[in-house]
Design a protein around this nucleic acid. Structure first.
Lengths: 114, 114
DNA sequence: ATATACTGTTCCAGAACCGTAACGAAATGA
DNA sequence: TCATTTCGTTACGGTTCTGGAACAGTATAT
């Protein structure tokens, strides 16, 4: 149970967004970020279809986001050997480090918020 | 001074991103969101050049974002009559309401975070 | 008056995204 | 076996964003 007023929320959101924009890495889209966080925070397995349903978007959106984030090294794909129609989305060391930095950044901005 | 652990930060970020993706409104890009929040949270005046420098992006990025968010009604442009080279970025009722909803949403997600 | 500096915008080619629809591969059921 | 269903991906046409360069309009300085 976190106490975070709407005003504090916007201030925190602002700082986090600014930090994202200012660093040199290319920004993830809102959808990509939602997918990435879901893969790392929700329990596996994660399939394309499951992610699409969870986020309320079409399957090609997931496929394309996985393509992009795969190239970035943030997630990996693997065939489900038990049902080879499925693709299982997996975490990577690089992705875990990326989100760890993000969490640290937000946490730090929160600490500096009045 | 807010206490928000990295883990709580990611969880909060996740929920906020999911809410953004799931609603029907088109998602703002990270840059657009950063510009919008800067205009509403930092003291005016806001110029294209100032915003570009503050965010570390080029001026066309600001111009285009103002075009898009202007069509959405989230911000407005006005010539600076004292120096007609400048464009002053102004807040709108619709933009204020948008950010108020965003702040409420994040605040509410925070309250539901363990 | 004229050159210079500065502002925001527009133009350009390229990249990434979008939704819809069609698709091949794999599993299921008759 | 063969039709059907269920996967994820690809193809299509269109929109939006990107950085860099050129631009017109305004202010300033000589």
């Amino acid at each position: 149970m976190l106490i975070l007023s709407p005003s504090q929320s916007l201030s925190l959101w602002h700082k986090a967004m600014l930090a994202q924009v200012r660093d040199d890495d290319p920004d993830l889209t809102t959808r990509q970020m939602a997918i990435l966080l879901t893969v790392y925070l929700d329990p596996p397995p994660h399939t394309v279809r499951g992610l699409a349903a969870n986020l309320g978007v079409t399957k090609p959106v997931i496929t394309r986001a996985l393509d992009t984030m795969g190239i970035m090294g943030l997630v990996a794909r693997r065939r489900d050997e038990r049902d080879r129609r499925n693709v299982l989305v997996q975490r990577t060391v690089e992705g875990a480090e990326y989100l760890q930095r993000l969490g640290d950044l937000i946490s730090q901005q929160a600490a500096e918020t009045v």
